[in-house]
Design a protein around this nucleic acid. Structure first.
Lengths: 357, 357
DNA sequence: CGCACAAATTTGATCGATCAAATCTGTGCG
DNA sequence: CGCACAGATTTGATCGATCAAATTTGTGCG
């Protein structure tokens, strides 16, 4: 027994293809009695319209594309992992599908866009990072392809801009600011910042939050002394922490969990027996969770859901061009989400159950 | 200027659609002179056949599906991450595309298969884990859908079987065996095993390798004493290590990096100043790399490539049913890859460059 | 009753490719 | 010259849906 098609089902029910099609796509056009009869038959036969045939006619693939970035670090890759998972779920819930692809550079990524648009007819793309003066977003905008970015656009000087395309981002500065405030409340005043070497604008943003909070607390003169940049590794974090400690820092806010991990180990080594060092990481990766490290958590699941909301809204309104009443409020095309510091019980933990094998 | 189609290009070149189609799909049927002229025109016009139209006619989507598992642990999730990346690359290189989806249970996964097969016409699936007596593989086999599994099939007693479907796996027992041998060479003899609580067959397999190596080295009578099971967390690892240490273990082989991490911390605490504890983890996750932990590394990239090799081979020979000469040797439908222990310089590392911000 | 007009349903064309069969070209050879 | 036959190319149908337009059915009302 072959898969039912519109034609085969229509024959069985003694109605036309179009009527069945209308039951699925424009139910209000079909008389209620007929509609119910056909709906029942659709369920009974397990009929599902072919996406390929539909795409051929409508020029819509109901398919989004996303580049899978090469796992740079691995520790921090966990953030993208959670993002990807939430994105897949949201895509599915919206009735779309998600196609993954790889690219070995940003220009190759553009080549892939072109190919995927021509061949597979993808309806839109999700980008998971943005660079200053991004060539990819420019290309997509010129071509008029729907897309949304997880990450704010940055101007060529590396400062956040608003841009004209859709994006969602997490307010890194707000995160580090919150971390500093928490440490101030705990009685710290010499709070260091441990960031990245590279001119990465995301890192600069996180540093700004620390600086803002220090300024506000009246520690402006300490800022130059207490800010250090290191290589994005555990070892880099250890070295940076040593330097900050030598300058009298009693607490450290970091740009990443890798740095924070190194910093924590180093402080523990320098001041043994003083309990968990006051170190806050960024991204709340599984490692931080496993080791009881405080960390600033990004609401990536919320970000992913919003991205899909924006994309699907845009695609839906493209179709209904003209004088259509927007049933729902348009989602913000540019949204900055607030992160929060995750509190944790310090290690070592109470022993958990073990068993003889 | 709209995207060129077979028809529009044919008109321009004053040839028929079919001839252009043949240039792409059966070049030998076209006279060399014509072929070159058309090939040049295809490039110049940037013509790319529409996947939807092709799929409608050929009933092939050139698309694989894979379920994205909910990130259980996070630390060990990194293995699937690397696998996914390699898989995406291999899929792309083979001229296919990869569709991701989520499911909240194995039975829901089957429902998703059904839907994706009907709607999107996927050509095959990649499964990333297998359970004893797996309902999903049974369903796919009954339906005759091509698929390949990363992970051996297990019988209902949890012992590895060969099954009748395609799979690739990493020989966990060989990995732990190698780890024991390395530790024996380093002079250890009381080598403990720290595994999982759960009846997970993967864990049982890893334990078997340790046991085999201990038997072979003449330490059979120590086996009952030196095998402990704990919860799959860092804290669990610490507790388990404490117990093993109390029984005189000088080295520990673990089922995961999470356990190994906990074990390392605990041994360091129990025996300060004796250098890096002799602990070996499993999966060579980024955390292990960051912390200088020894670990058994799975060749996941090779596994991913092989899975695609198997799937594409199967699909290619399905098409050429009958008396076709297999141009290439068929790839092994069931393949067990050997892992290896990753050697590492013990932490703390030499200080790396830092800089004043 | 019959006409206008809206609602419900059907028909034929189309999206862009490939398949199978038909037609056209060219070459060798009696 | 003409016929057979392989090679090259073209033609018409088809995959399974939706669109736009045509047709049928139903309702209200003078």
């Amino acid at each position: 027994m072959a898969r039912p098609t519109l034609a085969s089902l229509a024959r069985e029910l003694a109605v036309s293809r179009q009527t069945i099609s209308n039951v699925l796509n424009a139910p209000h056009k079909v008389k209620p009695a007929t509609r119910e009869r056909i709906q029942a038959a659709i369920e009974a036969a397990g009929y599902r319209p072919s996406a390929a045939a539909r795409q051929l006619r409508t020029q819509r693939s109901m398919n989004f594309g996303m580049r899978l970035l090469p796992a740079t670090d691995g520790i921090n890759g966990a953030v993208l992992d959670r993002f990807l998972h939430a994105l897949t779920e949201a895509t599915q819930a919206a009735g779309y599908r998600l196609t993954l692809f790889c690219a070995d550079s940003d220009s190759d990524e553009i080549r892939q866009y072109e190919e995927l648009l021509d061949v597979a007819g993808l309806d839109g793309f999700i980008l998971t990072s943005s660079t200053p003066d991004d060539a990819r977003t420019r290309w997509l905008q010129e071509r008029g392809t729907p897309f949304a970015v997880f990450g704010r656009p940055w101007d060529s000087a590396g400062r956040p801009t608003s841009g004209s395309h859709s994006w969602v981002d997490v307010d890194g500065a707000a995160g580090t600011e919150q971390a500093v405030q928490m440490l101030l409340e705990q009685g710290h005043s010499r709070i260091g910042f441990l960031g990245w070497y590279t001119g990465n604008p995301v890192g600069a943003d996180r540093r700004r939050g620390w600086q803002r909070a220090m300024d506000a607390a009246g520690h402006r003169r300490d800022v130059p002394d207490l800010s250090v940049e290191a290589e994005e590794t555990v070892a880099g974090g250890a070295s940076g922490a040593a330097l900050l400690a030598s300058r009298g820092a009693t607490a450290i806010v970091c740009s990443s969990d890798s740095l924070a991990l190194g910093a924590m180990e180093k402080l523990r080594e320098l001041r043994p027996g003083t309990g968990r060092p006051a170190v806050v990481g960024f991204d709340n990766t599984p490692v931080a969770a496993a080791l009881g490290l405080l960390s600033v958590a990004q609401p990536v699941e919320e970000a992913a859901r919003h991205i899909i909301r924006v994309l699907t809204y845009e695609l839906a309104s493209n179709g209904t061009a003209g004088a259509a009443t927007p049933a729902t409020n348009p989602p913000d095309r540019q949204l900055l989400l607030a992160p929060h510091v995750v509190e944790r019980i310090p290690l070592p933990l109470a022993p958990t159950g073990i068993r003889q094998a």
